[in-house]
Design a protein around this nucleic acid. Structure first.
Lengths: 198, 198
DNA sequence: TCACTAACATACGCAACGTATGCTTATTGA
DNA sequence: TCAATAAGCATACGTTGCGTATGTTAGTGA
C-alpha cells in the first residue's frame, strides 16, 4: 500500500464534498440540504467539511466557483463556432440562456447563490462570465460593429435579461417554444446596440 | 372597555407581524431572521404567526404581496407624469430600477423571495408588476410606437435587465453615477424595440 | 346566558449548524 | 531510521430555531 501524498488525499476529499454538494444543492436547494447527509453520501463526516471549507457557505462558494468556470468554458466554445463577432456574441448569450435553464445552474447560481452569498458581483469568480461579456462588447465597439456604449452597464443588463429569461422559460409549460421566443426577444433588444448601423 | 371586533384584532395582529417581518427580513435576510425575535418585537409569540400564516414561508409570502402592491402603485404614478406613452414606459422602468435599489426591496423581492419561494412568475401577486409591463408593451404596439414583439418575452427580459442593473448599482462605489449609466444603457437596449421607426 | 369556536400563548420534540476535543497518519529534521 | 509535530478528519457536545401539539382566553351566535 503505497502511502499516498497528503495533497492528493485533500484534493480527493474536497472533490467528493463539492460533488455531493452540487447534487444536494441542485436537488433540494441550499437551505434544505443537510450537511450530515451530504457528507455521509461522500463517505465522510462534517469534520472534513468544516476543516476544508470553514462553514456551509464556504462549501457553496466552492461549488459556485467550480460551476462558474465550467460556464465560462462553454461560452467560449459557443463563440468560437460563430462566423462573425456579432454572431459570436449572440451565440454566447444564447448559450448562457441554455445553461441557465439547467436546474443545477438555475438553483445554485441564480437563486441560492445570490441569496446566500449576496450579489454575484461580489463573488470572486462569478465575475468571470460577466467580464467576458464585457470584453466581447468592447471588442465589438472597437470593430465598430456596435455603437459606443458603457460596456459594463450593457453586460450587466444583458446578463440580467438572460437570467430572467431562463427563469421564465423554466417555469413555463412549453419550454422549447418559450425558449425560441426568449431568444428572439433578446435579439430584438440587443439590436438597440446596432441601431445606428442598421 | 368596548369589546373590539374579532376581524379588527386579526387585521392588527397580521399587520404587526408583517411590519416586523419586513424590518427583520430587510435588515438580516430571511434565513437569519428568528421567528421568536420577530414576533416578540411585534409584542406577540410564534403562536400568532403559525395561526395566521402557517409557517415562515407564509409570512414571507404575505410580506412580498404587500411590497408588490406598493411597487405597482409607484410604477403607475411614474407613468402618469410622462408626456408620451413611450416616455411613460421608460419612466416606469426607471422607477423600477430606483425601487430595486432600496435595500428592503432588493433583499426581500430580488434575493430571498425567489430563492425561498421559487421563481417570481410562480408567485400569486408578484406577477402584477410584470403583467403591467406587458400591458404597457401591448399598448405601445397598438399605437405603433414600437414594432410587433412578443410582449411577455420582452417584459420578462426588461424586468430582468432592470433587476440586475439594480444589484449592480447597489454593489458599486458610486451608486449615483452608476445609476445614470444603467438607465442610459437600458434606453439603448430598449431602442431595439423602436428600430424600424427610428 | 351558555356552549362553541377562533385567536393566540405555552410547552415540547427534533433537526441541523458550528465548535471543541480526540485520534490517526503523513511529513519533517536530525 | 525514528521520534516529534502538525495536518486531516472523526466524534461528541451545546445551542439555536422551526414546527406541532396542547392549553387558555375572549368573541360569537342561538
Amino acid at each position: 500500500m503505497a502511502a499516498r501524498r497528503r495533497s492528493e488525499m485533500v484534493e480527493e476529499t474536497r472533490g467528493k464534498l463539492i460533488a455531493a454538494a452540487r447534487r444536494a444543492f441542485a436537488a433540494k436547494g441550499y437551505a434544505a440540504s443537510s450537511m450530515d447527509e451530504l457528507t455521509a453520501e461522500a463517505g465522510l463526516t462534517r469534520g472534513a467539511l468544516y476543516h476544508n471549507f470553514g462553514d456551509k457557505k464556504g462549501l457553496l462558494q466552492a461549488v459556485i466557483d467550480q460551476i462558474d468556470a465550467e460556464m465560462l468554458a462553454r461560452m467560449r466554445v459557443a463563440n468560437e463556432k460563430a462566423q462573425t463577432p456579432w454572431l459570436g456574441f449572440m451565440a454566447e448569450n444564447k448559450a448562457y440562456i441554455e445553461m441557465a435553464l439547467e436546474p443545477e445552474i438555475q438553483r445554485i447560481m441564480l437563486l441560492d447563490g445570490p441569496a446566500v452569498l449576496g450579489d454575484p458581483s461580489q463573488w470572486p469568480n462569478q465575475t468571470a462570465c460577466l467580464r467576458r461579456t464585457e470584453d466581447i462588447i468592447r471588442g465589438l465597439m472597437r470593430d465598430e460593429t456596435i455603437m459606443p456604449v458603457d460596456a459594463e452597464a450593457v453586460a450587466r443588463l444583458l446578463n440580467g435579461a438572460a437570467l430572467n429569461a431562463a427563469l421564465w422559460i423554466a417555469a413555463s409549460d412549453d419550454p422549447q417554444a418559450v425558449f425560441e421566443k426568449a431568444v428572439e426577444a433578446f435579439q430584438t433588444l440587443a439590436a438597440g446596440l446596432l441601431r445606428v448601423r442598421d
